[in-house]
Write a protein that binds this DNA or RNA. Structure first.
Lengths: 402, 402
DNA sequence: CGCATATTGTTGCATCGTGGGACAATTCGC
DNA sequence: GCGAATTGTCCCACGATGCAACAATATGCG
């Protein structure tokens, strides 16, 4: 039951019904491919006549295509339908503190080629480097299809509508327009998003997520993307999901944000490192060690697996703190699923007990404690898949109505 | 940008476009009444012809009505349109621990008559008493219109779809069906909801709320209703918004829920009382004092206003804790507005500085600290208005599409 | 093979929606 | 009294759904 916003509503025009139904068909094909027209008609509970019309329009538009004939126990064999993905290409870019990743993928997020380079902090230089890589990738592997756009994941706070990076401590940027220069340099449309939301979009459009979930990213900091009813919750100032800066302990450890006792200060990669090195290492110093790759969480996990008791202890401590924070998220939002991304997820078998124990202790109701918590490995490149999803999602999203 | 749920979608039928546009017209009239057909056409950017059709259908259906002629600088005088509310009546019921409130109101939430009685904890007796009051109110004041339904606000966790009270510590109920017996006893449709969500609905449909906000109720406990994009966020187990049981301090004060250090344990009415009486009063005892009306927060506020320094100190302490918790909510959701309901809101002038100070300290970005925090007086009967909104809202809500 | 049966996909028509312009009714200014 | 502006209604072209009939195709069985 949704209230209509009388200052910003969408009237139904003559073609609205058709658009809605066409989009539903497209999504049904996406989820159930291969699927026949008749099967679609059964699932949608409408006549095959209308489905044929809608399907033919989608084929015309290049959204879906007909494949081989399918099997049937009796009667005419169905012609199976697929979403067209293999020859629709996407450039996905993930800018991180140390390195920038540029991937060429198809519309389903399948990797075709991947390049990386050292991130440069000057806007012009960064855009130039990205554009050069894009052109090279397109020249080398772009023959198999059309490039539909660029999805760009930036660290920090971004304004999706203007394409500006509003604030990025990692890059030292304030209100920098990166979308338009990149679009101009490449001639491709660019969508920009921050990392947690991109990861959430990847799960929603290319993964296994339901329509109401939360994606927690654990890296230098801790970010949370909130998805309600299939929509990302952005908040009034594009700054929802800052669970990382909710205070876990009054007068606790100093956080990179300057406040004391933030959740992030106990469970980020920086914090994990601090757990290992001992608390006399201040967070900024631990951050520098991490960034200069003198030590990494991945290495810590290696050490823990090969018998380093202190490393294991540090990870388990992070797990405990992670569980405490997750119980906050669960209490606040009661999502259907929680995804956890970041290096720490590859130590999930080592820390899960500790995570779970804290969740059980911190959550109000037993059913909520049983919310599925799903680790996602960094090796799956969730950020890059998210960048790809940025380009694909608008094609499949529901039309805005009423 | 919303993802379509392929397991639960709504096809556009032949009449969908009309329904969408009719509902938009209804809401425009609701917000801008009195308004003419021509003005509607301008706001909607469509021809007056279509608006006339839609308006006439709505008049036929009894949703809106024509009033007197309006003014215009030139040309034919417009016939003004109004939402029909005065002769559409609603029964609003608010069941609280000590007393139950039964109100007869019109569709706009305007009170026509109000009765109260001591809450009885036996389901049958409670339903009987409620039904008797409803019948009496309808006999006495119901001549002016048709009763469209009953909105019932229950303390604790409710399942809106089944009409069951799943868990109510205040009443000592577990999984009790209260909706169907009341519907049968009165012959009226009954909608059931918990208190925070009802208050949020009242603000959204009868008040000044935007489409993305949060309603914090402070009473025996602390509850938060979350509204995103004009929709209430219920969560997987109908238990979202339990910010009250996020831990503020490890090993802190015992909460009524049994855990230690919950926000609720520091800012509920029970907590405020504890601040006044001194912390050696355990929460259950403070709760009993409150419930037996040996002392109330309203009285505490009176004392503070008449020079009782300890009372003022207790309130300010509650304000500080309230601010801490609100900063959590702001960090987590970045809503456009926050409403605060409960007895404490009538001491807002006394505590606002303390609230604001904590919000400033606890929130990550300055803009977020400037989120409007709006106290709502209990004298406005937000729960009862919410109960009324329960009946009215489905009439005005957007049709579910795609 | 010949035929009944079942299934898929297409076509046609009735009905109901928007889109847009012409038209009558009404009021004000000159 | 007349022109101009404004409101509300009417009408018709076109687009979308809803439904049923129809053609195409495959299987099973005598």
């Amino acid at each position: 039951m949704r209230k209509i916003d009388v200052r910003d509503f969408n009237l139904a025009t003559r073609t609205t019904s058709r658009e809605i139904n066409r989009r539903i068909v497209l999504n049904l094909v996406r989820e159930h491919q291969p699927i026949s027209r008749a099967e679609l008609a059964r699932r949608m509970d409408v006549g095959r006549g209308k489905v044929s019309l809608l399907v033919n329009e989608l084929i015309e538009a290049g959204e879906i295509l007909e494949g081989e004939f399918g099997e049937s126990t009796r009667g005419r064999k169905p012609k199976m339908l697929y979403v067209r993905t293999h020859d629709r290409l996407v450039i996905a870019i993930d800018v991180r503190f140390s390195r920038t990743y540029v991937m060429l993928s198809d519309f389903a997020g399948h990797q075709i080629a991947l390049e990386t380079f050292d991130t440069v902090f000057d806007v012009g230089a960064l855009v130039g480097e990205m554009a050069a890589r894009v052109k090279r990738l397109v020249r080398a592997h772009g023959a198999s299809g059309r490039i539909e756009g660029i999805g760009l994941v930036m660290p920090g706070m971004v304004d999706r509508s203007t394409g500006h990076v509003i604030h990025s401590p990692q890059l030292g940027w304030h209100d920098v327009n990166v979308r338009d220069p990149l679009a101009e340099a490449t001639g491709l449309p660019v969508s920009i998003e921050n990392a947690p939301i991109a990861c959430a979009l990847a799960q929603m459009w290319l993964g296994e997520a339901s329509n109401d979930f939360v994606y927690v990213t654990v890296s230098d900091g801790v970010g949370v993307a909130i998805v309600v009813d299939g929509q990302v919750v952005r908040g009034r100032n594009d700054s929802s999901g800052e669970f990382g800066h909710i205070r876990l302990r009054p007068g606790g450890t100093e956080c990179l944000c300057g406040k004391l006792g933030c959740w992030e200060a106990y469970t980020s990669n920086v914090a994990t490192l601090s757990h290992y090195l001992g608390y006399d290492v201040p967070p900024r110093e631990a951050l520098h060690l991490l960034r200069e790759q003198r030590i990494s969480v991945a290495e810590l996990i290696d050490r823990a697996r090969t018998g380093d008791a202190r490393a294991l202890e540090a990870l388990k401590r992070t797990g405990t703190e992670l569980g405490t924070g997750l119980s906050m998220v669960l209490n606040a939002l009661n999502p259907a699923q929680v995804f956890v991304g970041g290096e720490i997820s590859s130590a999930w078998d080592l820390i899960w007990e500790d995570v779970q124990k804290e969740i059980r202790a911190g959550v109000l109701a037993d059913v909520v404690a049983r919310t599925p918590i799903i680790p996602e490995q960094t090796s799956a490149y969730p950020r890059l898949r998210g960048a790809a999803a940025l380009v694909a999602a608008p094609i499949y999203a529901a039309p805005e109505v009423a």
